[in-house]
Amino acid sequence: MTQKGLVLVVEDERPIADLLRLYLSRDGFGVHVEHDGAAGLAAARRMRPVACVLDIALPSMEGTEICRRLREDGDWTPVVFLTARDDEVDRILGLELGGDDYMTKPFSPRELVARVRALLRRAAGPGEGERVRTLGPLTLDPARRSAGVDGRPLVLTPTEFDLLGHLLRRPGRVFTREELLAAVWGYASHAGTRTVDVHVAQLRAKLGDAAGLIRTVRGVGYTADA
């Protein structure tokens, strides 16, 4: 048994998979590796890992398809995508399908482990003492990790939930993309603020008629404002 739970790594480049296994194991995670997309999906469904690290380009089934099928199953396990293609399409596609983060090869295995830890901290949520937050028809309960609009439950990824929660901590306060990246994702701005824009777009899509509560401040960032 490991203290931190099992991480599923689906990566067809064996040297990279072995490196990830080494670094995640050193950090106290159990690690299961698959080199094929279909096998990775089966392992995710069977093993229920605490997090998944999915290469996008895989034999038989891409990592984005694995994520899409898990989300269709109602499985919101945190997902980090790996891609060798340094373009916006792969990144945005992955995040739109419910991914929580991405890294472009080559990458630092230490940074990947740090991002997995940050995702799991967010998924675990805050202590029971955090108050319920409301803004217009929107309600967010940090202790129960639940949110809703006019009584309609919202199905959010851990990252979407924490992004919304951070904005609702100080309604009307404008947060820069760099501030949101550091506070919600837990790493520096050099990682790319486009990630913030994609998650805000996805969050607005899920809010529906309440999407206007998250306002863009041109040239600065975002604010939650009724």
Rank of each mutant, 00 (worst) to 15 (best):
L207W: 08
V80R: 09
L156E: 02
R170C: 09
G129L: 07
D12E: 02
D12F: 03
V9I: 13
R71S: 06
P106G: 01
Q3C: 05
R144N: 13
E111S: 10
R91C: 10
D162R: 15
Y23I: 03
A224P: 03
D18F: 05
L138K: 03
D87P: 00
A118C: 00
L22F: 12
R173Y: 14
G28Y: 04
G37Y: 06
E88Y: 13
G99D: 11
P158R: 12
K4C: 01
W76V: 00
T157N: 09
V50W: 09
A118V: 02
A226R: 11
R169Y: 08
K206H: 07
L8F: 09
D12G: 00
R122E: 06
V80F: 11
D100R: 13
S189Y: 10
V9W: 08
L180E: 09
G129D: 14
L8S: 10
H32A: 15
P137K: 02
E178N: 09
G99N: 13
A118F: 00
I214Q: 00
T64H: 11
T193M: 06
R91Y: 04
R131K: 14
V116Q: 04
V50A: 07
H199Q: 12
A44F: 10
L41P: 02
R170W: 13
V155G: 11
Y102G: 01
D197Q: 09
P106C: 02
P158F: 12
S108W: 07
A57N: 11
A17G: 15
R26K: 15
L203T: 08
T77Q: 12
R169P: 01
V31C: 06
R115T: 00
L168G: 03
G63R: 04
D36K: 00
P49D: 12
Y102M: 05
A205Q: 15
R152W: 05
L24G: 02
R110E: 10
A211I: 07
G99E: 12
L180F: 10
V196N: 03
A43C: 11
R122H: 11
V132M: 04
L54K: 07
P109E: 01
A42D: 15
R46A: 14
